[in-house]
Design a protein around this nucleic acid. Structure first.
Length: 284
DNA sequence: AATTGCCACGGGCTAATACT
DNA sequence: AGTATTAGCCCGTGGCAATT
């Protein structure tokens, strides 16, 4: 049992590591720079090119935005939400969704959740509900590592430390259900949902505490249920999710000497998938 | 082993400057 | 004046090194 049902493709991972070594070793043979091996690596050409390509991948938001837009459109056409808009230009990479009951759900789009950037979010004042959507476009990424890092190390610490309420998390992108990240939900292939060029398994949904955990007054906040978070309910219904596939993220906080400590527990269908100890929040 | 922060990057905006 | 181009700033990004 693990924090997310899917896992990285180990074979692919191995090939990536091997190929990275080949690249480092043989890169000087490519292109027409006219440099010999030593000069090539001395010149900064290799390093610079690698950084450039990497930067392009991590900074470019086009494909991610396009993906989210298509999914939200699908939900709108299907009548699962009333409307949506991108708050992107003015604010952050956020989406505001008007639910069928006219409540406002705010979505913060994030990447792979591993990295300090995951700590940067702000629940806007007009949000009736606030969720984070992880879109990880790297086929070589490790979803288990990333989901745990994201939920426990980054988000739970930020929620407590900065008093931020997050109602839930969606982990869902176009790598889901491909050979790079096989999805066990697709044991039944008929569950694939066709949206534009994508053929996707249902999203992975995590329900978070309904209130901000706080050692003194709120040490064990009650969790949201799916019907409490309209945008998550809508995603589940639109894309064929099942109740027994929902994840619950319980966060327990306490004081322990000078430290604030928290215990994170991830459950699915009642079963504990992963649980931390009561670990201190370290913030400099 | 788990957790936290670094860092170099590109995108997107806007201000500044150059050109009709 | 009005438009086009460039420069510069801020921000989010994610793999991984540093730290605990």
């Amino acid at each position: 049992m693990s924090e997310i049902p899917c896992q990285k493709n180990e074979e692919l991972r191995l090939k990536i590591v091997e190929f990275a070594e080949v690249l480092k070793r043989e890169a000087h043979k490519l292109g027409e720079h006219g440099l010999d091996e030593e000069d090539f690596y001395q010149s900064g050409l290799f390093r610079g090119a690698i950084e450039r390509v990497r930067g392009q991948f991590s900074a470019s938001m086009k494909e991610k935005r396009g993906f989210v837009a298509q999914m939200l459109d699908q939900m709108r056409f299907g009548g699962f939400i009333k409307d949506w808009s991108s708050a992107g230009e003015a604010n952050r990479h956020d989406y505001a969704v008007t639910l069928n009951n006219d409540r406002t759900a705010i979505i913060e789009l994030k990447g792979c959740l591993d990295g300090n950037n995951t700590n940067i979010f702000e629940r806007p004042p007009h949000a009736d509900e606030f969720v984070i959507w992880s879109v990880c476009s790297n086929p070589g990424a490790d979803p288990r590592h990333n989901v745990w890092s994201g939920i426990h190390t980054r988000l739970s610490a930020e929620m407590i430390d900065r008093n931020q309420r997050i109602d839930g998390l969606v982990v869902w992108d176009w790598i889901c259900g491909t050979s790079a990240r096989p999805c066990p939900k697709l044991k039944d292939e008929t569950r694939r949902c066709e949206v534009g060029q994508y053929k996707l398994p249902p999203p992975c949904i995590y329900l978070f505490p309904a209130t901000v955990p706080s050692p003194r007054n709120n040490p064990r906040p009650r969790l949201n249920r799916i019907e409490d978070v309209g945008i998550l309910q809508a995603m589940m219904d639109c894309f064929g999710g099942r109740g027994d596939e929902l994840h619950e993220v319980e966060i327990e906080v306490a004081h322990q000497g000078p430290d604030t400590v928290r215990k994170t527990t991830i459950r699915r269908d009642g079963a504990v998938l992963k649980q931390s100890e009561l670990t201190p929040i370290r913030r400099s």
